[in-house]
Nucleic acid binder design. Structure first.
Lengths: 227, 227
DNA sequence: CGCATACTTGATAGGTTTCAAACTGAGTGG
DNA sequence: CCACTCAGTTTGAAACCTATCAAGTATGCG
């Protein structure tokens, strides 16, 4: 039931996926590794790709950790245009997986990125901007996880994700991920995610024509619920 | 009772605080702004310092947001050597405050940083490393906030903070912050922080000679509790 | 048509927030 | 010097919320 979901996108599939890359990366690069994955496929391993920086060009990727007790925590959901790196420090083992079919990432060595920045300062500013956005998004996620009740977290997630998808219809969003993914992303159980969705519907904040189809009926209610 | 707490440090106070800056920033810079704050003082406002990058050189700073309902959430605790930026995107209003007395931050414009990187690639790699560490730490914080029970979060916080302080005695740490700060940092109530500390003591994981003085008695128990 | 996966709802046990009150220690002024 | 004040810490009790286990529903696919 899940495999058919795709992110709404204005760009056709195929080579044009490189549109979400910064311009200096348009041209093919011998040092670049491109990986395409179907839903659930691991598209990068930390050990094999140390020193690499990845760009998500299409689909949706999830970066997560598995706790010793078996719990999965998704630390990041990555959309086209997002940047991700798997070895930021004394790294715990994160996994990078395709969350939906036809997810493509392109990886460059950090050295190659440096060379390109040296050759084109404007490219450096683009990368800098992407990293700053990445930091800002992680902090917003911290705010969502720091909320007290589950419904606050779900409301926050919906608003954040709707803003990120930023489609032509900002009040209609198609969730590309399951309740399980949402649960592991905002740190509550999948059952509670369901209950909160139902409760938000009951309050008139959203409508759920289909489980993955969310319509924001009253954004004010949703924003009030968030806090 | 709080004002006397200082982070243990090997370096003397004063000018030498610049030791935690990357080398190209050692020399004074006309574009740099240096701010020193006592506990509770706001040391930077987002509006006044757009486009700036700050380096914490001594003390401890807290970056936090105030929710509409009045709740404070600390998204980051910043130690000497940490880098922080207040305008990462369509920024919500974060505050940057000194968490203890004699906290010093030095701010540079992003343009100045770019110039220094252009002049010295090695400096660029230092900054890059600092940013990557910053990202990695935010993700670890997400993992802590994503845990289910409160005692898991407290155990995770203690291990993370002990690692960051990295003193000569890795099993003895002096908390520079109150239970309230810890609570607002890991997203639980301050009373629950207390109860978890007591419970960890009862389990033989830690000892609390004083409220702010934590001794790790059995790291294995602490790490088991974390998951 | 039946299976597998995802979603939803129910009941219960357990944990956390909240409100309350007592305790501690440091600094202050009489 | 001591009582006082105040912020921080700790513990208690009750209400509330969530995780967990369980069962039932819906939907796409073979």
């Amino acid at each position: 039931m899940d495999a058919g979901y795709r992110l709404p996108t204005t760009r056709p599939a195929g080579e044009d996926c490189r549109q979400s890359l910064p311009s200096p990366l348009y041209k093919f690069d011998s040092t670049a590794i491109t990986k395409k994955g179907r839903r659930g496929q691991q598209i990068s391993s930390p050990s094999a790709h140390t020193g690499h920086i990845f760009f998500v060009t299409s689909g949706l990727a999830r970066k997560f950790a598995i706790q010793p007790d078996g719990h999965r925590h998704i630390v990041n959901l990555l959309l086209p245009g997002d940047i991700v790196c798997l070895d930021g420090g004394i790294e715990e083992t994160y996994f990078l997986e395709a969350a939906i079919d036809d997810t493509v990432i392109v990886g460059y060595t950090r050295r190659r990125i440096e060379e390109l920045i040296a050759a084109d300062p404007q490219f450096g500013r683009e990368i800098q901007k992407m990293v700053l956005h990445s930091l800002a998004r992680l902090e917003r996620q911290l705010l969502i996880l720091g909320r007290i009740t589950a419904i606050e977290k779900v409301a926050g997630f919906l608003l954040e994700f709707a803003a990120r998808l930023s489609q032509e219809k900002p009040n209609t969003l198609t969730l590309p991920i399951s309740r399980y993914d949402i649960a592991d992303f905002i740190g509550i159980s999948s059952e509670t995610v369901c209950r909160c969705m139902t409760e938000l519907t009951r309050r008139g904040a959203i409508a759920l024509p289909q489980p993955r189809q969310v319509t924001i009926i009253d954004r004010d209610i949703l924003e009030d619920t968030e806090h």
